[in-house]
């Protein structure tokens, strides 16, 4: 199959790489750029393990062609911590045991950060509703909800 050249900014760095036109953004990140923090947990855009930020908004990267992200600014879980310091949302997940096996965690954290940008002071109900697109099989969500509320508070301060 023919290949095309795709350019975008990923975690603040400009990248250009060749890929098949059918390449999904998540495949481009994982296979081409070897950014394996973004995970694939399903093939029907249900689970949210692949959530990244595209131009500041959360997107399931399995639903988007890499070519569609041409010129976009992508942030993945690898780009969230700055200068070795966990992002407040990452720190809150650790503090409140909002992760167990860690597989849904990157997508969950990226969704949570986007959630807070839209709901700076979310209550439990809002968090649960907003995380409907991210499936976790380990935690029962109890501690994720606590973590997101605490992470939101930390992001405000």
């Amino acid at each position: 199959m023919s290949s095309i050249t795709i350019s975008m900014s990923v975690n603040g760095k400009a990248v250009t790489a060749a890929a098949e036109p059918r390449t999904l953004l998540v495949e481009f990140l994982r296979e081409t750029l070897k950014l394996t923090g973004t995970h694939v947990g399903c093939d029907t855009s249900q689970c949210g393990a692949c959530v990244v930020h595209v131009d500041g908004k959360s997107v399931k990267s399995c639903t988007m062609l890499a070519a569609t992200a041409e010129g976009a600014a992508i942030t993945t879980i690898e780009g969230l911590a700055k200068d070795g310091e966990l992002h407040p949302m990452q720190a809150a997940f650790r503090e409140h045991h909002g992760l167990q096996c860690g597989f849904c965690t990157p997508g969950m954290v990226m969704s949570a950060v986007d959630l807070v940008s839209r709901h700076p002071n979310p209550d439990e109900h809002t968090v649960r509703e907003q995380l409907e697109g991210n499936i976790c099989r380990c935690t029962g969500y109890h501690n994720i909800v606590k973590a997101v509320i605490a992470g939101a508070a930390a992001m405000r301060s």
């Binding site: 923090g37 973004t38 911590a81 860690g102 965690t105």
Partner: peptide, 9 residues
Amino acid sequence: DQRFLTGKG
């Protein structure tokens, strides 16, 4: 958690 939270799993 450090590695899972930073995509280094």
